[in-house]
Design a binder for these strands. Structure first.
Lengths: 353, 353
DNA sequence: GCCTTGTGCTTGATCGATTCAGTAACTCCA
DNA sequence: TGGAGTTACTGAATCGATCAAGCACAAGGC
């Protein structure tokens, strides 16, 4: 009772395999009558059409693209910014008839490399750090087009990024312009698996996520432009393995209980900003009257919190669409950078006197 | 410069193809020294390991499962309930080393059938109505395991459902128990592509989504148990092609401007409930003092709205995990039903006098 | 009546691997 | 010394299709 193949159908009808193949793929290459007979025979045998895997082998393409991510996949489904981005990609592929394969998370080194080596796809989009070790090698060895998202890297690669540095600089400058002098930063994780905690101002430790590095640099620039001593600005990074909002709530707790409590917080994402607001609310600190908070990304979170967050808008969906189209175009080696924009809502105001 | 194959490596080293294959798949079948030489030669030639598609053909499995959905994929990424469900599945597959392929949306009939026919996967999970026409036939013709989610159907199939009827009955009974007599229902779409609008009490029109049918039946039961005339209960369904929250906001608008405005609304999802609350807020109607609203699903939306929603909890993530495990087990023909539970928060209270 | 063009179908090679059934050499123990 | 058992490797078949080349026959042009 093994599944019938194209050859079985050919035998049943008394024609060649090629003809059956044509009945499915090139209907005008054979007479309509014969085609009907073939389709009828296929139906009767329970043949569901050419096997996609065999076709993929012969044709050299599978109609799938792989999404490379280095966190547990369940995280992906709880991060609004990534979801918007992936949603943007999905809509393009949906129209193109291409499937999006969410690959198992990339672990370090060999296991991750084998995920890449074993994925039956026509191309990759990476939304994580794959620049090191065995993984990049495995990616390159596949000789497939790939688009790197949210990771700047020198060298001729197809990359989609935003102006992280300019955006975070604008965020910090906004607070500074409102008169805030006691600033604090709530930052993204430094690198995969990094624990949370204080970032040293002189040496924040190795930062693998370039988004994080760029945003930090932008904030620092704004602070120094405003004559603020950078080593007086506390910067805390959340750990990599916890819900960002909750992690930020905990971290911000300490920050807000200090004697010299900051009056303005630059958070590197809306989730983090929301966590900071949560922490403030829990302590009876009013936002924005006593504490101003800026987010980043402009996800739905920014408008669903109370108060709605002042944040840095980035075109998440459009970026996803662009990444998808680039991959469909064979991932030409170029860097596409999108601008960011400050959106002032209700979580920031003049520094208290 | 076409990519090297296993045969090229074999030739370079001077061994048979089988031996090279073994170097990758069965390391203990050959001497360590030879294995090293093979791997070194592969590295030098730029051979990235056995081609996944060819392996898939020979082995008869691809390590991918397909997710079947009949709306634009971008919708999937904005629906919290589906996201939680898919996130639950993804976490299981992530651990199992399996990829989740988001297939292009299933259009009616032939196009949809061809998506199913062309997907290079080992199994399917459907989270939509595939019971009709060419699509079910195409699914069955693939002879692959599949799990139907959120769609009850007689016949020996692997299905994962919840007690929709009992849940919505509890939701309505909750409002009725609080003394509400002027009830209204804000319902899910009837069928794919259906326009929004009033459901006739006697004949609500053809309902293809069994979830919708079950929830409607549950509400009706509760109403009739409480001695309420079912044909006096207005029921409005949202259209299938619009953001549910916005659609609900618009629909509820009319409802709330009636002279005999309802005091209690049973919404068939949290998104719909949130839309109803939005509409009330926009009109200065206080929730819950002047209007009680019950949701369904207990997604994060339920706790992030103001006031937090009374809703029917269902184990979305667990359900996803179960569906994933069932598929890994070959999709045995059985129906797994999860219970639901009323969670009372702040969007409901006694009916105003 | 001969040459061209085109339609409709077939043959055999090929995509890149895995697997089954060996074989040759080498070890072990009686 | 001879048979059993092991180790290391090979050859040919196979997975299920697509594709390039080619063949037979009919229609059309001169």
């Amino acid at each position: 009772m093994t599944a019938p193949t194209l050859a079985d159908v050919a035998r049943a009808v008394g024609v060649s395999r090629t003809t059956v193949s044509n009945a499915y793929n090139r209907p005008n290459q054979l007479s309509p009558g014969l085609r009907d007979r073939i389709l009828a025979a296929a139906e009767e045998l329970g043949y569901g059409g050419p096997d996609p895997v065999a076709r993929g082998l012969r044709r050299g393409r599978t109609g799938m693209v792989g999404l490379v991510y280095d966190q547990p996949l369940s995280y992906l489904f709880t991060d609004p910014a990534i979801l918007m981005f992936v949603g943007g990609m999905a809509s393009v592929w949906d129209d193109a008839g291409t499937s999006l394969a969410l690959l198992p998370r990339l672990e370090a080194d060999d296991a991750g490399a084998s995920v890449l080596a074993n994925a039956a796809v026509d191309g990759f989009v990476s939304i994580c750090d794959v620049t090191d070790d065995a993984r990049l090698a495995a990616l390159v060895a596949r000789r497939l087009p790939f688009v790197m998202v949210d990771h700047r890297r020198s060298g001729a690669r197809c990359q989609v990024v935003i102006d992280d540095r300019g955006g975070s600089r604008a965020a910090a400058a906004h607070l500074l312009g409102l008169g805030h002098r006691r600033l604090a930063v709530v930052a993204l994780p430094r690198s995969p698996g990094a624990p949370g905690g204080t970032l040293g101002p002189a040496d924040p430790g190795p930062i693998r996520y370039t988004v994080m590095a760029d945003r930090l640099a932008g904030i620092r620039e704004a602070a120094e432009d405003a004559g603020l001593a950078w080593d007086g600005v506390p910067a805390l990074a959340v750990p990599d393995d916890q819900s960002p909002r909750e992690a930020a709530r905990e971290l911000a707790g300490n920050l807000l209980e200090r004697a010299d409590r900051p009056t303005g917080v630059v958070a590197m994402s809306d989730e983090l900003a929301a966590g900071v607001v949560d922490a403030a609310v829990a302590r009876g600190i009013e936002v924005p009257r006593q504490l101003s908070v800026v987010g980043f990304d402009d996800t739905p979170t920014a408008t669903s919190t109370a108060p709605p967050l002042t944040t840095i808008h980035q075109p998440l969906t459009a970026r996803g669409e662009t990444a998808a189209r680039l991959l469909l175009d064979g991932a030409p080696a170029k860097v596409v950078e999108f601008p960011t924009e400050l959106v002032v809502r209700c979580s920031t105001t003049r520094a208290p006197v």
